[in-house]
């Protein structure tokens, strides 16, 4: 899951990015409006955390431009402006959620998960595919009732594939979503993660579309 954090307070930005990374997100950061808009326009993020008062371009202006470009990326506004008017303006401009400073990181993460889940068309935080149950809240995976230990990367890959189950996920999408700007990874790492997941969850859990990408097809267990 790749998310973008646009925040001009260095200390807050670092805390946010580190938290997100520890949660398994690929977090990009932008410290001013120009950088934020550029990044938001140039990559596909699963979600954007956006401060409103930014040097360069105002947060609302970034949001407006993104929506004008028909970008559907969920945007969570993070701001110290707490008046009803501000919240209404933010949501009406196209934000999907609004969190007021100061906030608890756990709440931010929960809202972020909800945003991503909803955007993918998933309503239940528990995703079940055949005998595998993925809890997107606690980031735990169970197979036949027993927990399967996964690394953060493995979990992120699994969640990405299962969120868009039945759809083809290209390798470039996986790179885009799994690795932030700061990650220096080799392309074969994706294969390594996929083979680890297959070992832990069963050979046929992830199908390979040769030359295109991967797919988790849960069509026969759609009756969750």
């Amino acid at each position: 899951m790749r998310v973008l954090v646009v925040e001009d307070e260095p200390d807050l930005l670092s805390a946010l990015v580190q938290t997100l990374q520890e949660e398994g997100y690929a977090a990009d950061q932008a410290a001013d409006g120009h950088e934020g808009l550029f990044k938001a326009e140039s990559s596909d993020y699963e979600a954007i955390i956006l401060d409103l008062m930014l040097p360069g371009i105002d947060g609302l202006e970034i949001l407006r431009r993104l929506r004008q470009q028909r970008r559907k990326t969920p945007v969570l506004i993070l701001t110290a402006r707490d008046s009803v008017n501000d919240r209404v303006t933010g949501l009406d401009t196209g934000a999907d959620d609004y969190l007021i400073k100061p906030f608890a990181l756990s709440e931010l993460l929960a809202r972020l998960r909800a945003l991503i889940r909803r955007n993918a068309g998933q309503v239940d935080p528990l995703i079940q595919i055949s005998d595998v149950v993925i809890n997107t809240t606690t980031h735990t995976v169970c197979r036949n009732g027993t927990e399967v230990p996964l690394t953060a990367r493995e979990y992120a890959l699994l969640e990405l594939l299962t969120l868009y189950r039945g759809k083809l996920i290209t390798r470039s999408m996986i790179y885009e979503q799994l690795f932030g700007d700061d990650d220096d990874t080799l392309s074969n790492v994706v294969e390594v993660h996929v083979s680890h997941l297959r070992k832990k969850l069963g050979k046929d859990f992830i199908q390979t579309r040769r030359g295109q990408g991967y797919q988790v097809d849960g069509s026969e267990t759609d009756d969750v």
Binding site: A15, A80, S106
Partner: peptide, 13 residues
């Protein structure tokens, strides 16, 4: 609010 948010999130992290 902003410095408070910094303190709280840094501590939580």
């Amino acid at each position: 609010r902003t410095p408070l948010a910094i303190i709280l999130s840094q501590v939580e992290l």
